[in-house]
């Protein structure tokens, strides 16, 4: 218990003193996870809309794969992204292993199925005849998709939250493809693992608290937007 209180106290002093290293790690975490979430939205929302609206053989199988991907273990993603980015791997020529770019890639791989899966569910939860109604109003194919996405915007915000939540908190993939290099690829989760390993529980607690506050702040912001839009 004493250790815990000591940790909280140390965390507080690190936070209020705006410790440079802590600030750098926090900003990098935010940058990597926001970039990965953004990338997953660019891929996941169109893919989810397509899967929800298109009719093709094997569609259910693909949706099952996406749903399975929503629970993809980060270490498995880390392993495969490492193999792809390894010097001799298919993407080795990019030379981005152990850089923030590799971490963004790995985190995007984790977040994309989450965003895709929630997008599929959001679009499919719209009233059954809404697509026909939009088309009956004279919408082109692109206009139809745009209106349906706009109608599903509240559940789609949940996709953003789930995607961001999934990547800001993951550690396995980040450590494997980023290497936890100080000043380059060290983020809140990987630093927490390292400090705990070293027995620096006070620093680890400080890092954890910042991670929790960060995750809460982003989700709170999105929740406020979502709930403000929701009719009462």
């Amino acid at each position: 218990m004493g250790l815990f209180i000591e940790g909280i106290s140390k965390a507080w002093s690190l936070i209020v003193s705006l410790d440079a290293e802590l600030l750098a790690v926090t900003l990098l975490s935010l940058k990597i996870s926001c970039s990965a979430t953004l990338a997953s939205l660019f891929i996941g929302i169109p893919a989810g809309v397509f899967l929800a609206l298109a009719d093709f053989p094997g569609r259910r199988f693909v949706i099952s794969l996406v749903n399975t991907g929503m629970g993809l273990p980060p270490v498995v993603v880390g392993l495969f992204v490492t193999l792809f980015l390894w010097r001799n791997g298919p993407l080795g020529f990019l030379e981005i292993l152990y850089t923030p770019a590799a971490m963004i890639l790995a985190q995007a791989v984790i977040a994309t199925p989450i965003v895709t899966g929630i997008t599929v569910a959001s679009i499919q939860n719209l009233p059954a005849n809404l697509k026909l109604q939009v088309q009956a109003l004279g919408a082109t194919r692109l206009q139809t998709v745009w209106i349906l996405v706009r109608e599903a915007r509240l559940p789609l915000l949940a996709a953003v939250m789930a995607g961001f939540g999934g990547v800001i908190s993951e550690v396995g993939a980040s450590i494997m493809v980023g290497g936890n290099i100080m000043g380059q690829t060290r983020v809140l989760t990987t630093a927490t693992v390292m400090e705990t390993g070293k027995g620096n529980f006070d620093v680890a607690i400080a890092l954890s608290l910042i991670l929790l506050v960060l995750a809460f702040s982003v989700n709170y912001l999105l929740t406020v937007i979502q709930q403000r839009e929701r009719p009462r």
């Binding site: 005849n129 026909l132 109604q133 009956a136 209106i147 009719p231």
Partner: peptide, 12 residues
């Protein structure tokens, strides 16, 4: 053409 369904299917 225009079509009206059984449910109003209004936008949010």
């Amino acid at each position: 053409l225009a079509m009206v369904f059984q449910e109003p299917l209004l936008f949010d």
